[in-house]
């Protein structure tokens, strides 16, 4: 017998079937779940692949960094050049400033200009020492 429109299920009846279908969610077996997770692990990008690589630095760069970088190195270079220059040029001003101690060519004359007492405090004078000896 051919079906007519009245033979059809109405929406509510059909919905009952859909509801039954929606409730029928298959459970994954343990072995199938394990297979899925194994696939996932196999193709998963590794975390370290995204971490920025630490570039190996040459020894001299490491040394400069330890000293304090290029500014510190420039300061040291300036001091070195200044030292060499002072050594060669022996400027008169330095002799004046140091009172002839540092750069006097004739070191014997230093004794004639300055006595030891000139560098020692007066209260620590030789008189005291002589009295003790006596």
């Amino acid at each position: 017998m051919a079906k007519t429109e009245t033979d059809l299920l109405d929406d509510a009846q059909l919905e009952a079937f859909f509801e039954a279908g929606r409730e029928e969610v298959p459970e994954l077996s343990d072995s199938f779940m394990a297979a899925l997770l194994q696939d996932a692990a196999q193709v998963q990008p590794q975390a370290h692949a995204f971490a920025p690589k630490r570039a190996a630095r040459p020894f001299w760069k490491e040394l400069v960094a330890q000293i304090g970088g290029w500014p510190a190195l420039a300061g040291m270079a300036t001091a070195t050049v200044a030292g060499v220059w002072i050594g060669f040029a022996a400027p008169d001003q330095l002799e004046t400033l140091s009172g002839g101690v540092l750069l006097a060519g004739d070191y014997a004359s230093v004794d004639t200009i300055y006595d030891v007492q000139d560098f020692a405090p007066n209260y620590f004078g030789t008189d005291l020492l002589i009295e003790e000896e006596g």
Binding site: K3, D7, L8, L9, Q13, L14, F17
Partner: peptide
């Protein structure tokens, strides 16, 4: 509609 038809026989 086709589902309703197919299921009608098992109503």
């Amino acid at each position: 509609k086709a589902l309703a038809m197919a299921l009608a026989g098992r109503r």
